[in-house]
Amino acid sequence: MRIVVKFGGTSLGSGERIERAATSVARAVEQGHEVAIVASAMGNTTDELLDDIVYDADESDRAEIVSMGERTAVRMFKGALSAHDVDAEFYEPGHEDWPIITDEFGEVDIDETTRRTHALAGTMRDEVPIVTGFLAEDHAGNVTTLGRGGSDTTAVMLGKYMDADEVVIVTDVEGVMTGDPSVVEGARNVGEISVDELRNLSFRGAEVVAPSALSYKDSGLGVRVLHYQHDDLLTGGTTIQGEFQRLIDLQEDRLSCLTVAGRAVRNRPGILSELSTALSDEGINVEAVSSGMDSITFYVRQADVETAETVLHDCVVDTDTLSSVTVTDSVAVIRITGGELPDQPGAVNRVIDPIADARINLIDVITSATSISIMVPWDDREQALNLVQDAH
């Protein structure tokens, strides 16, 4: 089995923890597995280095300075593996076989990185490669970085291009939890989670796997999150399933939008829950929701609109700070989904600008971490769909 293991800063935060990590790697190697390591900076080294840059350093100098945390970590890890009689080699920018190359725009050069990573994978039969996480190198040999959480990106990227069976993210959390264990009682590990679910959680503050890393995961690559105190790298933690799919979909059902206006939208806690619950109690599925300062809009199937309007009107009548409910029928929704959307500047504009240029009314645009939903008049749906498809 070929695995890439990323050790986060916490798991390398002391000599004792590095020794623990090295022991787990040595055990996997003894069992006959091919292992590559991605090492983050030890503890909070990167943050401390950044805090110490109090002068106006240019990007190249900053990259060189912050790289020292990872450069130290790979040397420490190699020493620990050598103490276990495991052959290892560390790789950092400047090494002749360094794998991760960026172009003039700071983006990963996929072709060159794939070629170099394949070559690095060929060494895994004889040694454990230890790669600095977070760092890259441009074609001129300058140190660049992969951004915040870049060590996760390094690991999943290498796993993909090394044709690894699995990437293991070793961190200071026990996989993905049902809730924050420091806040809620009884939080437990989620054994499995989809890549879409995790990416949405990541963009909303769940610090498990960096969102940028998940775009490199494909269906054939296993990714697992494991606590650093779990000594067996091959078991436990949370498995991340699936891969991102780029889909452009026109929903077949006509929708209606119901807009509830009133001061309660911003001044009364729980108003969204109350309105949603009222619709749910009548068996009405809400397809999408958008909100403004003084309004909430619910999108439901047009077949349900009369019941939905009655339900929401009753809520308006019963609540002094809600003013009215209005309805617009014959709405179409086009959905674009894809894990790479958050990493593409201007992704929303590329979708909506052609529609606006065609003088099609945009009723609403709703975005999430991995999707864009566009609401247009029903009669314009086919033209809008074609414009979106051409834009992608």
Rank of each mutant, 00 (worst) to 15 (best):
H95D: 15
L158E: 14
T178C: 01
V168T: 12
P99C: 07
D152V: 07
G147F: 06
E107M: 09
T178M: 04
F134Y: 15
A136E: 03
D126K: 12
S151T: 09
D165V: 00
F134I: 10
F105P: 00
I169Q: 05
T117I: 09
R125G: 13
D111L: 05
L135Y: 04
R148G: 03
G150W: 05
G122K: 13
T102S: 08
I100P: 09
F134C: 12
D103S: 06
D103W: 04
T144K: 12
G94N: 13
E96V: 13
E174T: 07
G94E: 14
D126Q: 13
D152W: 06
W98E: 03
V131E: 02
S151C: 07
D109V: 01
A121M: 06
D126W: 08
A140T: 15
T117C: 05
T123H: 14
Y161C: 03
R148E: 08
G147E: 09
E137L: 01
H95C: 11
A164C: 04
V176D: 01
E166G: 04
E166K: 11
R125C: 00
E127A: 10
D180W: 03
Y161N: 13
I110C: 01
T145Q: 05
A119P: 00
D109F: 04
F134V: 09
G106S: 08
L158K: 09
G179C: 12
T114V: 07
D165E: 14
W98S: 01
T171G: 07
V131A: 07
V156K: 08
V170K: 15
A164I: 02
E107Q: 12
E92G: 00
H139Q: 11
M177D: 05
V173T: 11
H139E: 11
R115N: 12
G175Q: 05
E89R: 15
L158V: 14
T102I: 06
W98V: 02
D138N: 15
R125H: 14
G141L: 06
A164M: 04
P181A: 02
E104N: 12
H95W: 08
N142C: 11
G179D: 15
A155R: 10
Y91E: 03
V108D: 05
I110V: 14
I100V: 15
L158N: 12
V173N: 02
T153D: 01
D126N: 14
G106F: 07
I169H: 02
G159R: 05
W98C: 00
V167I: 06
T113N: 12
V168D: 02
D163M: 01
R116M: 04
T154F: 07
G141T: 12
I101L: 02
V176T: 03
R115S: 11
E112C: 01
V173R: 03
S151F: 09
I110E: 13
V131K: 04
G150V: 06
I130K: 10
G175R: 08
R115E: 14
P181V: 02
I110N: 05
E96L: 06
I100A: 07
T113E: 13
S182T: 13
E89T: 15
E89Y: 05
A121N: 08
D111Y: 02
